[in-house]
Deep mutational scan, measured.
Amino acid sequence: TETVELHKLKLAELKQECLARGLETKGIKQDLIHRLQAYLEEHAE
């Protein structure tokens, strides 16, 4: 999932992505995007 794609997701979809990775789901859309980006960078293959 790339940065551009995360911005296209709806808030509910971002929350699902966070939940699937065991991440916090509180906060505004930008918080969730930032959290997912950090996770994806950390776990990049």
Score class of each variant (00 low, 15 high):
2 E>Y: 15
2 E>A: 11
2 E>V: 09
2 E>L: 13
3 T>S: 10
3 T>L: 13
3 T>A: 10
3 T>Q: 13
4 V>H: 12
4 V>G: 13
4 V>T: 14
4 V>I: 15
5 E>F: 09
5 E>C: 11
5 E>S: 10
5 E>R: 09
5 E>Y: 04
6 L>S: 02
6 L>W: 12
6 L>K: 03
7 H>F: 07
7 H>I: 04
7 H>L: 08
7 H>K: 06
7 H>W: 06
8 K>R: 11
8 K>Q: 07
8 K>H: 08
9 L>G: 01
9 L>K: 10
9 L>H: 03
10 K>V: 04
10 K>A: 12
10 K>N: 13
11 L>Y: 14
11 L>P: 05
12 A>T: 11
12 A>I: 09
12 A>N: 10
12 A>E: 14
12 A>R: 10
13 E>D: 07
13 E>F: 02
13 E>P: 00
13 E>Y: 04
13 E>Q: 11
13 E>I: 07
14 L>F: 01
14 L>K: 00
14 L>W: 00
15 K>M: 07
15 K>I: 08
15 K>L: 04
15 K>T: 07
16 Q>V: 06
16 Q>P: 00
16 Q>T: 07
16 Q>A: 11
17 E>G: 01
18 C>F: 05
18 C>M: 03
18 C>G: 00
19 L>F: 11
19 L>A: 14
19 L>P: 01
20 A>M: 13
20 A>G: 05
20 A>P: 00
20 A>V: 11
21 R>M: 04
21 R>V: 04
21 R>F: 05
21 R>S: 01
22 G>L: 01
22 G>T: 00
22 G>N: 05
23 L>T: 00
23 L>N: 01
24 E>K: 06
24 E>D: 15
24 E>P: 11
24 E>A: 12
25 T>Q: 04
25 T>D: 14
26 K>T: 15
28 I>L: 15
29 K>E: 11
29 K>V: 03
30 Q>S: 12
30 Q>D: 14
31 D>L: 03
31 D>E: 13
31 D>V: 07
32 L>F: 00
32 L>D: 03
32 L>N: 05
33 I>W: 02
33 I>H: 03
33 I>M: 07
33 I>V: 11
34 H>G: 13
34 H>E: 15
34 H>N: 12
34 H>C: 09
35 R>P: 03
35 R>M: 04
35 R>L: 02
36 L>T: 03
36 L>Q: 03
36 L>M: 09
37 Q>Y: 05
37 Q>K: 09
37 Q>S: 12
38 A>G: 13
38 A>F: 08
39 Y>D: 07
39 Y>V: 06
39 Y>T: 05
40 L>Y: 14
40 L>T: 12
41 E>L: 13
42 E>Y: 05
42 E>H: 15
43 H>F: 04
43 H>G: 10
44 A>G: 15
45 E>G: 12
45 E>D: 09
